[in-house]
Amino acid sequence: MNLTVNGKPSTVDGAESLNVTELLSALKVAQAEYVTVELNGEVLEREAFDATTVKDGDAVEFLY
């Protein structure tokens, strides 16, 4: 899956889609429990991480 992460191209191997929690784990995001996630310009509530799917071509920003 090809994404733009914090403005840079990134690839997650072996996945066509992941939820936000899985993406944080796959990318080994440090202190993931404290990060705010913006997906395609929309800031996500932490409670929505498990239910929100990240797909090929999406833009993700991790805000600390």
Rank of each mutant, 00 (worst) to 15 (best):
L3F: 07
G14L: 08
A51G: 10
L24F: 04
K55Q: 09
A51H: 14
T36C: 10
A26C: 11
F62M: 06
V43C: 08
V20N: 01
D58Y: 03
V60Q: 00
T11P: 07
Y64S: 09
F49I: 01
V29S: 03
T11I: 14
Q31V: 09
L3A: 04
L39D: 00
N2C: 12
V20C: 04
A15E: 07
K28H: 13
M1I: 13
A51D: 12
G41V: 02
F49E: 00
E42L: 13
A59R: 14
Q31G: 14
P9K: 07
V20D: 01
Q31P: 09
D13C: 15
E45V: 09
P9Y: 09
N2K: 13
N6A: 05
N6Y: 01
L18T: 04
T21A: 08
Y64D: 07
L23Y: 00
A26L: 14
G14Y: 12
T36H: 09
T36A: 07
F62G: 02
N2M: 12
V37H: 00
V29E: 05
K55S: 08
D13A: 14
L27R: 00
N2E: 07
L24Y: 00
L18F: 08
L27F: 07
T21N: 11
F49W: 15
T53C: 13
F49S: 03
Y34M: 11
S17F: 13
E33H: 10
K8N: 09
A59Y: 13
Y64I: 11
V37W: 00
Y64A: 08
L44C: 06
K55W: 07
K55E: 06
L23V: 04
E33N: 08
S25M: 13
E61S: 12
D13K: 14
R46G: 05
E33L: 09
N2V: 12
A26P: 00
E22A: 10
A48C: 11
N2P: 02
V20K: 00
E42K: 13
E38H: 15
V37A: 03
T21C: 10
P9C: 09
F49D: 00
L24Q: 01
G41D: 03
G7R: 05
L27I: 05
A30F: 12
A32L: 12
L44V: 15
N2H: 13
V29L: 08
V35M: 10
E16C: 12
L39F: 05
E22C: 08
V5Q: 01
V43H: 07
E42D: 09
T36G: 06
F62V: 12
G57T: 05
L3K: 00
T11M: 11
L44I: 15
D13T: 14
A15W: 13
V37G: 02
E22H: 06
L63I: 14
V60D: 03
V54L: 11
T4K: 08
V12S: 02
Y34R: 10
V5S: 02
A51V: 14
K8E: 09
Q31E: 12
D58C: 02
F62P: 04
R46A: 07
V54S: 03
K8P: 02
E42R: 11
R46N: 06
T11S: 10
E38V: 15
S17M: 11
R46C: 06
L3E: 00
V20I: 13
K28Q: 12
A51R: 14
V12H: 05
L44T: 06
E33K: 06
V12M: 08
E38I: 15
L24I: 10
E22I: 04
V20F: 06
D56E: 10
S25N: 12
T4N: 06
Y34G: 09
E42F: 11
V43D: 03
G41K: 04
Q31C: 15
G7F: 04
A59L: 11
V37Y: 01
D56V: 04
K28G: 14
L63A: 11
L27K: 00
A32R: 08
E47F: 08
N40V: 02
T11G: 06
T4M: 13
L63M: 12
S10L: 15
K55N: 09
A48Q: 12
V35D: 05
D50P: 08
S10V: 15
L24H: 00
E45M: 11
L23M: 06
T52G: 01
E33T: 08
Q31F: 15
E16G: 11
E45F: 11
L3D: 01
A59C: 13
V35P: 04
E45S: 11
E33I: 07
L23F: 04
E22M: 08
A59Q: 13
S17T: 13
L39T: 00
V43M: 10
Q31D: 14
V5P: 03
F62E: 02
D58E: 02
L18M: 15
M1C: 06
E45W: 07
A48P: 01
T36Q: 10
L3N: 01
E61W: 15
L63V: 13
T21L: 09
V37R: 00
A48W: 10
V43Q: 09
G57I: 01
V35G: 03
A48S: 11
G14I: 09
G14W: 14
N40E: 02
E38R: 15
L44G: 02
G14H: 10
A51M: 13
V20G: 00
T11L: 11
V12D: 03
V54E: 00
K8H: 11
A51E: 12
V5E: 03
T52M: 06
E47C: 10
S25Q: 14
L44A: 02
N6L: 01
K28E: 08
D13Y: 15
T4H: 07
V54C: 04
G14S: 09
E47A: 11
